[in-house]
């Protein structure tokens, strides 16, 4: 059977803006991925536990409350602690461009700002997700 990309879509922290996360979850599923939507108020520990148990290939993080510099690197760090080095971590939301560099250096492979065409995100994931 064809392998499916499994992706966790998570909202770290207390931010409740999930329009983008839900929209992308739907679009990822339409693109044939298996999408685990974790809902709001996720700690990095919860997100990483989900990624581990679900054997996720990709973790997509969404934040609009300005806490990305704390949460995104923390998720990458916890994944590494667990030896999950090949999980692709991407992020989106309201993230100042000046933070992109820092986030990418911390291991977030791509940041998608407001207005990014959804297919650009889908294609990035499809071409960068690991094989299992």
């Amino acid at each position: 059977m064809a392998k499916k990309i499994k992706i966790i879509v998570a909202k770290p922290g207390l931010d409740g803006h999930d329009r983008g996360a839900k929209l992308l979850a739907r679009i990822f599923a339409e693109e044939g991925m298996e999408v685990v939507y974790t809902g709001l108020r996720q700690t990095p520990e919860m997100i990483v536990a989900a990624a581990e148990q679900e054997d996720a290939d990709v973790v997509g993080l969404s934040s609009l409350s300005g806490v990305h510099n704390y949460f995104f690197p923390r998720v990458v760090e916890l994944l590494k602690d667990k030896g999950l080095n090949d999980v692709l971590v991407v992020g989106g939301g309201i993230i100042p461009v000046e933070d992109y560099d820092f986030l990418q250096k911390s291991g977030v492979k791509a940041i998608f700002g407001p207005g990014t065409p959804t297919m650009e995100i889908v294609n990035f994931i499809k071409s960068n997700a690991r094989a299992r």
Binding site: A2, K4, A25, R26, F28, A29, E30, E31, G32, M33, E34, V35, V36, Y37, T38, G39, R41, Q42, T43, E45, M46, A49, A50, Q53, E54
Partner: peptide, 28 residues
Amino acid sequence: SPFTGGALLGDRIRMSDHSTDPEVYIRS
């Protein structure tokens, strides 16, 4: 989905209290 082959798996949300309990393993 029979059309796209993809799926939206949302059951973890309501079990999120247990998501970091090492004695609970949840798989969608």
